[in-house]
């Protein structure tokens, strides 16, 4: 499959009163057509900022993309004109946000809001747009979609609103859907429904997905490939089975160790990672995870490890081979 999105060396900073926050520090990844990439990491590790930077939705000031490229079908999203990126947003790359309660405009009807991308990108008239919106709402499982076009967001439940959000993102048949923690604000039972819905729509429409989450459980059954982020870096990336089966970065091992497992006999205390995530006021010259890492060696404090290949298609940014406990050469 050809790659439709290549992000290279993306860096984003925020200027604040306390200093410059280095939120994203040279992130590179690529996305193939129809592929699902899961980006995981704890709050504040830069996963949302990474995708927002790509679409230039970072509030500026204080945010600024300071380096890197984001090539979509060979064109750099970061340097194209405002007009050009506008035609990509919502049409070819669209987003679903975390909180369905606040992500809709409270004073416009659902029908109006879902049809906006159609008006902007497809030039449909109101009648055509309405039919398309109703069709899309039916597809995401809203009962009586025609009657609900004139309803306002507050007349929908949280789960239903997230369905509408997904319908709105997919209404123009985009090639890439970016889902920024779309299930975090929902009940566990609703989370599963939303994941199933996205899976079904992906099989039907064939778009590529970037799914951001801090919940390793949600993403396991959905993603083809995973990228783990820490302190504004991607520290490990691998196909999903490989990552869950053979995590190599100490942080990934820690994350997986903090998950409860169904297949384990008896009870086990869940392991937590000691320490706090880094404050990103300085671009680290050493491994950002070193202060919390039990494998850390001398070198980790002097040199920030780049992503290194550990097996085919599996990369990890760690100086230590965690299986043997020995330093990589």
């Amino acid at each position: 499959m050809p790659e439709i999105l290549q992000v290279q060396g993306l860096e984003t900073q925020f200027r604040t009163r306390e200093g410059v926050i280095h939120a994203v520090n040279g992130v590179s990844f690529s996305l193939k057509e129809g592929e699902t990439l899961g980006i995981v990491g704890e709050s504040g590790c830069g996963k949302s900022v990474t995708v927002m930077s790509m679409l230039r939705l970072i509030p500026s000031p204080p945010g600024k993309v300071t380096a890197g490229k984001a090539l979509f079908q060979g064109r750099d999203l970061l340097t194209m004109s405002d007009e050009e990126i506008r035609h990509i947003r919502g049409a070819q790359i669209s987003m679903v946000f975390q909180d369905p309660m606040t992500s809709f405009n409270p004073v416009l009807t659902i029908g109006r809001q879902v049809s906006e991308p159609l008006e902007v990108h497809m030039g449909l008239n109101q009648k055509q747009a309405e039919d398309r919106v109703a069709e899309m709402l039916a597809k995401v499982g809203i009962p009586n979609p025609k009657d609900r076009l004139n309803n306002y967001p507050h007349q929908f439940s949280g789960g239903m609103r997230q369905r509408v959000m997904i319908a709105m993102a997919l209404v123009c048949n985009p090639q890439i859907l970016i889902a920024d923690e779309p299930t975090t604000a929902l009940d566990v039972t609703i989370q599963a429904q939303i994941v199933d819905l996205v899976k079904r729509l992906r099989d039907e429409l064939g778009m590529a997905i970037i799914w951001i989450t801090h919940d390793l459980g949600v993403i396991a059954g959905l993603a083809d490939r995973m990228a783990v982020m820490y302190g504004g870096f991607i520290i490990e990336t691998a196909p999903v089975r490989d990552l869950y089966g053979h995590p190599t970065h100490p942080y990934t091992i820690g994350l997986l160790g903090s998950l409860p497992r169904m297949d384990e006999a008896g009870s086990r205390r869940l392991v937590s990672i000691d320490g706090l995530p880094p404050v990103l006021l300085e671009k680290p010259t050493y491994c950002p995870f070193a202060p919390r890492c039990k494998y850390a060696v001398e070198r980790c404090w002097h040199e920030n490890p780049p992503l290194m290949q550990v097996s085919p298609d599996h990369y990890s940014a760690c100086w230590v081979d965690t299986e043997t406990g020995r330093e990589r050469s």
């Binding site: 506008r86 919502g90 946000f97």
Partner: peptide
Amino acid sequence: MRMDYIRTARSKGLAERV
């Protein structure tokens, strides 16, 4: 201006004027 739904509106590709 800081509301989530403004970000949503931009993510749909609406012109700044709209």
